[in-house]
Computed example of a mutant assay.
Amino acid sequence: MTSALQLDQVSARPSDSASVGAIGDLSHHLARIRVFDPDVRAARKPWGISESGDYLNSDASNLADFLRKLKEDEDAWELLLEDVQKVVPQIRDIHLVTPPDAVSHRTAVELEENGLRGRTRLADASWGTVRILCMLALFHDPNPPLLTCIEEIDHGIHPHALSLMAERLREASERSQYLVTTHSPIFVNELEPEEFVPCGRRPSGASVIPARKLRDIRGVIKASEYEPMGNLWYSGSLGGIL
């Protein structure tokens, strides 16, 4: 596989090289692809205030700074807070503070929760709470890259939150392109047939994508008298492997 460093080295060839333009275009497009895989441990930590807040890192390590930047847009912030409260109802508010044990140019996240006298530092919040905050923040990103890929989008997310996740993913897809994988029939139940691509494997081990064409998927759904698509997929009726 060619690395970004190798692409830079190739781009350093004389400007009359026929491949320079094509490689430059490829490098530009690769730089606009985000493989989003939140590192919950990193996302819990305070982050230095910088221009990094304009863009949520692939591992969500700058979550605090990204939220600080997002809060400058009151409408975007209110929508995010409403979403968080839908899936974690005990959260009353999200506060961005300067941690007392850190330098002044750092931001930390604290959660205000019903029934608790003090605030909960994100460092002390549950794994699932931090991950859902990372995922919802991603979908409210006002400046998404060209393509965002998410492996196991449902990982660590409460099943009751998957409906909202699918809805926000669909809305975010109007601003950018998303490619996600899942093994959750509950999440697939929230998708439309044209949003679902079952993946299979031949006896040789070669991948089959899609494992079933869209017209066949629609046919199976109709023949089942419109059984939820995730249930049909789980039963094996739509192809793909679990």
Rank of each mutant, 00 (worst) to 15 (best):
L67M: 08
Q90W: 03
R68N: 14
V87A: 00
P99A: 06
L80K: 06
I94F: 14
D73Q: 10
W77F: 15
V97F: 09
W77N: 12
R92Y: 07
P100G: 06
E82Q: 07
I91Q: 07
E78Y: 03
P89Y: 05
F66V: 12
E82G: 07
T98P: 01
V97Y: 08
K71H: 11
V88M: 01
D73W: 10
D83G: 04
Q85V: 01
E78F: 05
K69L: 04
A76T: 11
P100C: 03
A102W: 13
E78N: 10
V84D: 04
V84L: 13
K69R: 12
Q85L: 02
L81F: 04
V97L: 02
K71E: 14
A102P: 03
L81V: 14
V87I: 14
H95A: 14
T98A: 05
D93Y: 09
E78Q: 13
D65V: 11
Q90D: 12
A102Y: 13
A76V: 09
L70S: 10
E78V: 02
E82C: 01
E72V: 12
A76W: 02
V97T: 12
H95S: 13
L96A: 05
L81Q: 07
L70R: 08
L80T: 02
W77K: 11
L67K: 00
V88N: 00
V87L: 01
D93M: 02
Q85A: 13
E78H: 06
F66Y: 15
L80M: 03
D83L: 01
D65L: 08
L79R: 13
R68G: 14
P99H: 05
E72T: 13
E82H: 08
W77R: 15
P89G: 05
D73A: 03
L70K: 05
D65E: 15
L96F: 03
P89R: 06
W77T: 10
P89T: 02
D101W: 10
W77A: 10
K86C: 14
I91H: 05
L67R: 00
E82M: 05
K69A: 14
K69F: 11
L96Y: 08
I91P: 07
V87T: 03
R68L: 15
D75M: 05
D93K: 12
E82K: 06
L67F: 01
K69M: 11
I94Y: 10
F66I: 12
L70D: 09
E78A: 13
K86G: 08
V84W: 06
V87G: 00
L70G: 10
D75G: 07
D93T: 01
D93H: 11
R92S: 02
P99V: 01
K71S: 15
V87N: 01
A76M: 08
H95D: 14
P99G: 05
V87S: 00
Q90F: 04
D101Q: 14
Q85R: 15
D75T: 12
L80Y: 11
D65K: 04
I91C: 05
D101V: 10
L79D: 10
R92V: 12
D65H: 07
E72H: 15
V88H: 00
R68T: 06
L96S: 05
E78G: 02
K71C: 13
W77S: 06
R68Q: 12
E82I: 07
R92G: 00
W77L: 09
D83W: 02
Q90M: 09
L81A: 04
K69P: 00
E74Y: 01
T98H: 15
D101M: 14
